[in-house]
Nucleic acid binder design. Sequence first.
DNA 1: CATATGCGAATGTCAGGACAATCTCTCGAT
DNA 2: ATCGAGAGATTGTCCTGACATTCGCATATG
Lengths: 246, 246
Amino acid sequence: MSPQLIAVSIDRDSPIPLYHQLARQLTAAISDGQLQPGDPFENEVALGTRLQVSRPTVRRAIQEMVDQGLLIRRRGLGTRVANRKVHRKFELSSLYDELEREDRRPGTLVLERETVVNERAASALDLPATTPLLSIVRVRTAEGSPLAILHNWLPPAHADITREDLEQTGLYAALRARGCRPVVARQSIGARKPTPTERKHLRIHGTQPVLTMTRMAFDSEGKAIEFGDHCYRSEDYTIDLMVDER
Amino acid sequence: MSPQLIAVSIDRDSPIPLYHQLARQLTAAISDGQLQPGDPFENEVALGTRLQVSRPTVRRAIQEMVDQGLLIRRRGLGTRVANRKVHRKFELSSLYDELEREDRRPGTLVLERETVVNERAASALDLPATTPLLSIVRVRTAEGSPLAILHNWLPPAHADITREDLEQTGLYAALRARGCRPVVARQSIGARKPTPTERKHLRIHGTQPVLTMTRMAFDSEGKAIEFGDHCYRSEDYTIDLMVDER
DNA sequence: CATATGCGAATGTCAGGACAATCTCTCGAT
DNA sequence: ATCGAGAGATTGTCCTGACATTCGCATATG
């Protein structure tokens, strides 16, 4: 009944922090199925001694995994692998990434790409109302069928994103390639009847509604990255997320 | 341009951890407006010296606030109060709490309260399929108008929640009163046409859709607390949330 | 004048130790 | 046999200390 020892190799010369190297490999052991939900986890001090790292480093690695819902810690008892249901899949991802991960052949049709002045978007991004923004309208398809209409506004710093960038990789991937990583976003999700234009582009029949989401995304320094106003075919799409209180 | 010194009193005899005492008071200084977005923040070592606490303690307090989007840290530069747009309002709350906070006179009409066996709910809560669950159906009103139909299933441990509990306080408040705190939840949000029953209870006219949300909530130990299947009048309700990647 | 270089300041990482709080389990007394 | 006290194990909190990394800015250099 002693906890399973997970093989971990740590590289002290790597620029990647030790606690993160640790967390990545321990996380892999869980997603590999090497550790099952409910399994006991090697205790902090033993793990530290075995791997020749200090307890704070081990604690930080474990904390990372606890924050992601992978582990449950209880004082006096120990650490265990959490129930699979509470494992956090993802937090901040884009539709394109999701479709790609599920292998559903995502495609993009760029309907518009121009510089505009839009007070609502500028205000959402916390920029002056007259700031020129890059406005992008796309139709996202999966396996050839339209799934969503995505309208995004970007601050001037990213005004040089091209149609090709968008068609080949998706907006978030293009932003990441430019070293711009969204870290925090405020989203608002609702539902409504589609407009005639939306009905046409999304091939909506009858009285099916659309699911709408607006999003303001910021980087780690709090700089605005993107404002998006999206609408999805409700038959084909739900928004899944984990929320947690720490 | 030296940073503003925030008055903080720490009580070393309190059972509340020092880092949390610190974080609470510094957070208060921001919500009070004592510190404005963009203001520089006293650096870690100075703060520690001034308050006679160690640097790790200060760091942990600051980290708590960074996690909530209140502060921005940049190596080599310092810490600043974040842009207000990225301040996280709340993460995991209930409709009742939200309405109450906005002073919209929430009310509850309990339509059903009985013990059932439901495979879908049991599976979502990671319980055996034949576990008897308390099934609760409520209509939530705000200022007298119906806003949502809430269908929840609870594990046997909470089978003694009464109609009165639900009518007076709301489900989450009742659970909290029993020492049961939801910490992590998995949600799925979508949209669809309402059923005839929903149209009647929510007084939906024409072809207005409903916004739907299902939620599985767990406590800090990963134990199931609640499975909910809700639907909202889309004209009156959006789901707002912050997502972040750390 | 433009560009490098270097310095100070601040946060990031890591170590090692000490004690407290909490849980489980065993052992002993009744 | 049952119940309670205590021991052991494990995580939670806090401290001190050290060095690395990154950024802005002033100064030196071409």
